[in-house]
Amino acid sequence: MKNPNMKRLRRTMMFLNAQKPGLIKDPYIYKPDSIMLDLEDAVAENQKDAARFSLYHALKEIDYHGVERVIRINGLDTPYWQEDIRCAVAGGCDAIRIPKTESALDIHLVEEKVLAAEKEFGRPEGSTLLMAAIESARGVMKALDICDASERLFGIALSGGDYTKDLQTHITGTGIELMGARQNLIIAARAAGKQCFDKVYTNLNDTEGFRKDVETIHLMGFDGKSIINPRQIRIVHEIFTPSQKDIAFSEKVVKEIDSKKAQGIGVFTVDGKMIDIAFYDGAKRTIELAKASGVYKGEL
């Protein structure tokens, strides 16, 4: 059975260091769509074990009020990832983020361990979703294979720092260095029917730069963005939530197409714009996004 959370709303996915009790005790108050409890880069090498205990008890005992709990495990080239998976699945996490994914095989290796952990800890099989972080040129080139690798995989995410290093450039703030990867990832994700998420924006003081970055990826078709601070949530949600004007227009389009189809009319106008069946899916998506964002008051 397909996991009902495959397509849930994920506009903001907020990284939190799993080793820091002060950070993980109440992030739900900021209302991100997902939190990503990090066992990887944020946790020092000599604290990997302690972070797992902290993570396990947080998952078991803290009520995150419906915010999705994704766990970023350590890389498959480290000695930590298998125990990370046992801990995360035993704790009942919603999903696992695989770092530095470069092939379908990476997904298969994790999938196998996740299934084993679900059996070991009595979790329903298939209840743990996966997402893959793409952090290298090879990963970008293999994006479609990665997206197609597992039914558990709900999406892929670009990780900018490592990717630009691999490309022998750096984060410029203009987005030029990310154009190819962003385009490739969103196309691969859509081709496979999966979601796609953008990298973090690390300059917390540059609100305008952040806003432009989010507007860009929104226009490109991304589903959301990885974030590192609650201050970034409001801007992302504002940009990713359909406006009332868009919702009203989409509602008219859906209703008109439904009614005109019955009358055998294929092309007509709504608010002075020529509309045909090609507009239907986009308008339906806007309504669904508005519903998921809690701003839809209509009856569709």
């Binding site: 009790p21 005790k25 074990d49 302690a50 205990f53 902290s54 396990y56 008890h57 947080a58 078991k60 005992e61 803290i62």
Partner: peptide, 17 residues
């Protein structure tokens, strides 16, 4: 000012180390 879950995590962490 640790929550109960943090206390347990730290005790177990120290013991397993």
């Amino acid at each position: 000012g640790a929550l109960d879950c943090t206390l347990k995590a730290r005790i177990e962490g120290a013991v397993y180390r």
